[in-house]
């Protein structure tokens, strides 16, 4: 009786989890990616046009990394552990000391910052894709085990045998893992947005540092 109850609980929990996963898949539908685990719409790459309306940055896309000062600063300010206001201060300092090279140096910096943060972000997206695929696989295993479990009583009697490591324990364990991972994902799903946020803030500061009117 206890076992049957436990089984029912496991089954109900799993069903709820699978439903939730289906809902997440539905939310991500516009991109037609069945593995994407987030509520947010999947945007694999960013466009520079969404955050920049200053002079053309394209000429610097292939050259920024050859400028040691630009590359060093870009590499430093894209680190999310560096507080944003410090990063912005570093950009202003860089602009102030660039002299007549201020504009080309800042445009090169923009090219670098965009390239690095977009790259960082797409790595996170790829990680979320892998995570989504693993969750989907785990969900499929749980469903398969539940099917097996349902088939068992019909063969051997009305109650499944109770022994350590049996199928019901496995389902319970798998469901817990599934659920824990699902809770962890909501934080991870916010990371691409956080990177985009930082990119926009840095772009704003670079843009504001371009003009002669800026301090």
């Amino acid at each position: 009786m206890k076992c049957a109850l436990r089984l029912r609980r496991a089954a109900a929990g799993t069903a709820a989890a699978l439903l939730l996963m289906a809902a997440a898949a539905h939310a991500a539908m516009p991109v037609r990616d069945p593995d994407w685990p987030c509520q947010q719409i999947k945007v694999p790459r960013l466009s520079l046009g969404a955050l920049w309306d200053g002079p053309d940055v394209a000429p610097y896309e292939s050259t920024w990394s050859q400028d040691a000062a630009v590359a060093a600063l870009a590499g430093r300010i894209v680190q999310r552990r560096m507080p944003l206001d410090q990063a912005q201060q570093a950009i202003r300092g860089f602009a102030a000391s660039a002299g007549p090279q201020r504009q080309p140096q800042l445009l090169a910096l923009m090219a670098g910052v965009f390239s690095l943060l977009d790259g960082q972000r797409s790595q996170v997206i790829a990680g979320l894709d892998r995570f989504g695929a693993r969750q989907k696989q785990l969900a499929a295993e749980i469903v398969a085990n539940m099917d097996k479990l349902r088939a068992e009583p019909a063969e051997g009697g009305d109650v499944a045998p109770v022994r350590p490591g049996d199928l019901s324990d496995q389902i319970g364990w798998q469901t817990r893992v599934f659920e824990q991972r699902r809770q962890a994902i909501s934080y991870a799903c916010g990371v691409p947005d956080a990177i985009e946020q930082r990119l926009f803030a840095l772009a704003r500061t670079i843009s504001a540092s371009l003009g002669p009117a800026t301090p």
């Binding site: 466009s47 520079l48 969404a50």
Partner: peptide, 9 residues
């Protein structure tokens, strides 16, 4: 139409 932006954004 915004230069450098995909229409879906």
């Amino acid at each position: 139409a915004v230069q450098g932006l995909r229409n879906d954004v």
